[in-house]
Every structure is written in structure tokens, then in C-alpha cells.
């Protein structure tokens, strides 16, 4: 009894000491300040981002003067007019949005069982394997992975070599929209799994058992219990994958063969290829607006309480 008591008392004495130290360092009246102090770096970053966005918005209202290759001083809506008038921007935007939707849907479809298996497997070795398999691609950057796919899926790549060896002829596996979508799904999968994991881990196994015991087969259990309870995770993962895909540059650029640009490529081209910062800025603003609108739409469909940002409500 005596020895059992002395250990916690030492521990508590340590805690008391730390608290006393904290009290001395930070007077109680100033406690509120420390909270803000910790927030400061994040606020600073967001602030800088906001300033940058402000510049971009400003640029977007000036047209390019070809004679001097500077933006004209006069304000105008010309860049936005160009975006609306030229069907190419509509097409590129549509291609990006469709791509983002496809990638989001397919990625979630594959990520869900993966994350589910990770939270439910009883074998530690299996969990470790799933974890490593998930994280390994993280160490390989997007560009390297895209080039990897070029090597594997190219005309003289492993797949086509095998097909040719079987006398089946070769397939066009890269430099098309499908290749871009495929590359993006492969890239987004770990993000989606990581974002789904906590949501699925928060679903007690008991609840699934209860559903089963109450007469639901696994399909019904999945539909009526697991899926609704995983909704916060699905929405979170969906938003992340959607926005990352919508604004992706490397995959369409490398796997698309030059004719399946996403919006980011169009922005790059405006800024760098034709040195038209005004048009590029207008495109950027449009992308931010449309992306935000879609995220807002997600939230409104899913209900604002989805992410349970306020914590447990009593």
C-alpha cells in the first residue's frame, strides 16, 4: 500500500511543480494571450495567403498590353470576359470538375474498404502491412510516380510488353484522360484512407454487431449503420480529394500527353507560356470560386453539423 501510494504522489508533486512554474511564467491574467500566441503562426500563414489572393484578384482586373507586356493600368473585366467567351476554358474547367468528381468517387470507393480493414483487422501483422503499403507511396513524389506510370504503361512498358508477348497487340494506356484519372486515384488513395481511418475507428464494433443481431445482413448493416456513421470521414476525405484533384497540375501534365489539361495547366500557361498574368489571375480566381462553391455545396448537402466541429453536443 505504502509503495503504491508513493509513486503517484511523486508524479503529482511533479505536476504541481510544473503548474507552479507555469503560473510564475505566465500570470493568470495573461493566460488568454498564450492561446493566441500559439495560433499566431497559423494566422500569419493564412494572412499571407489572403494578401496573395488579394494581389491575384487585383491582377485579374487588368488586361495585358502586348506592346509592353505589362498589365494595363485601367481596370476592366476583359479577362473574365475572355474566360466566358472562349469555349476552351469552359471545356478545361468541365474536364477538371468531372475529373475531380470521378477521382473523388472512385478513390473513396477504394479507400473505404482499405481503411475499414485497417480498423477491423485483429492481426497486428496485417495492420502493419496495410500501414506500410499505405505510407510507402507517400515517400515517392507525385512527379516520380507519374513517370513511373509512363514506364509501366507506355508503348514499350511492362503491360504492353506482356500483351504483345501474348499476341494481343498493344493498348494506348497513357496520354489520355483515363490515364490522368488513374494516376490521380492512385495518388489520392493514401490521403483518403488516412482521412477515413479516424472516422471508421470511431465506429464501435458493438454497433455493427448490434445491427447484425437485430436482423440486418452485412449489406444492410453497411448501408444503414456503417455508412451513415462514417459520413463525417467520407465528407472530409471527399472534400480533400476533390479540391486536390481539381487543382492538380502534375498528373494531367505528365500522363495527359498535352491534350488533357486541367485548370492548373491553363493557369500555368497564362502566367508563363503567354506571360498574361491578368488572364492567369482571372482563371485562378474562377478556380477558387468554383472550388469553394463545390465545397459549400458538399457541406449543405451533408448538413452543417457533419464534421462535428463543435465537438460532442449534449
Amino acid at each position: 500500500m505504502a509503495s503504491a501510494q508513493s509513486a503517484p504522489s511523486l508524479f503529482w508533486r511533479l505536476i504541481d511543480g510544473l503548474e507552479a512554474l507555469l503560473r510564475r511564467l505566465v500570470p493568470p491574467k495573461r493566460r488568454g494571450v498564450t492561446g493566441w500566441l500559439f495560433l499566431a503562426p497559423a494566422l500569419l500563414l493564412v494572412g499571407i495567403l489572403a494578401v496573395g489572393l488579394g494581389y491575384i484578384i487585383e491582377y485579374s482586373f487588368h488586361e495585358l498590353d502586348i506592346a509592353t507586356y505589362r498589365l494595363k493600368d485601367a481596370y476592366s473585366l476583359g479577362n473574365y470576359q475572355t474566360l466566358i467567351e472562349r469555349p476552351v476554358y469552359r471545356n478545361v474547367l468541365w474536364r477538371s470538375l468531372l475529373g475531380a468528381a470521378l477521382v473523388t468517387a472512385i478513390t473513396l470507393f477504394f479507400a473505404f474498404p482499405y481503411a475499414y480493414a485497417m480498423t477491423r483487422t485483429r492481426s497486428a501483422a496485417m495492420r502493419k502491412f496495410l500501414l506500410i503499403a499505405l505510407f510507402l507511396p507517400f515517400f515517392i513524389g507525385q512527379v516520380v510516380r507519374a513517370y513511373g506510370w509512363l514506364i509501366i504503361l507506355g508503348k514499350q512498358g511492362v503491360i504492353n510488353a506482356m500483351l504483345a508477348g501474348l499476341g494481343l497487340g498493344t493498348l494506348d494506356l497513357i496520354y489520355n484522360y483515363g490515364a490522368v484519372i488513374f494516376g490521380l486515384i492512385q495518388y489520392m488513395l493514401p490521403f483518403a484512407v488516412l482521412l477515413l481511418l479516424p472516422a471508421l475507428a470511431a465506429i464501435p464494433e458493438d454497433v455493427e454487431m448490434a445491427s447484425e443481431g437485430l436482423g440486418a445482413n452485412w449489406v444492410s448493416t453497411f448501408r444503414h449503420v456503417v455508412l451513415p456513421m462514417a459520413k463525417p470521414g467520407l465528407i472530409g476525405a471527399g472534400i480533400v480529394v476533390f479540391t486536390l484533384t481539381l487543382t492538380d497540375f502534375a498528373m494531367p501534365e505528365i500522363l495527359g500527353g498535352g491534350t488533357t489539361d486541367f485548370v492548373a495547366s491553363a493557369i500555368y500557361d497564362s502566367f508563363f507560356q503567354i506571360s498574361n498574368a491578368g488572364l492567369g489571375a482571372a482563371l485562378s480566381v474562377a478556380l477558387v470560386l468554383i472550388g469553394s462553391a463545390f465545397v459549400a455545396l458538399f457541406f449543405s448537402i451533408a448538413g452543417s453539423t457533419t464534421l462535428d466541429i463543435g465537438g460532442e453536443k449534449k
Binding site: P87, V88, N91, V92, T259, D261, D269, Q273, I274, N276
Partner: peptide, 13 residues
């Protein structure tokens, strides 16, 4: 810029 826009329009459209 004009040719680029047109080229883009045709090939990215």
C-alpha cells in the same frame, strides 16, 4: 498570345 489561345482552344477543347 492569339495563336496560343486558338491552338489551345482547338486541342484542349
Amino acid at each position: 498570345p492569339i495563336w496560343f489561345a486558338k491552338f489551345n482552344e482547338i486541342f484542349q477543347g
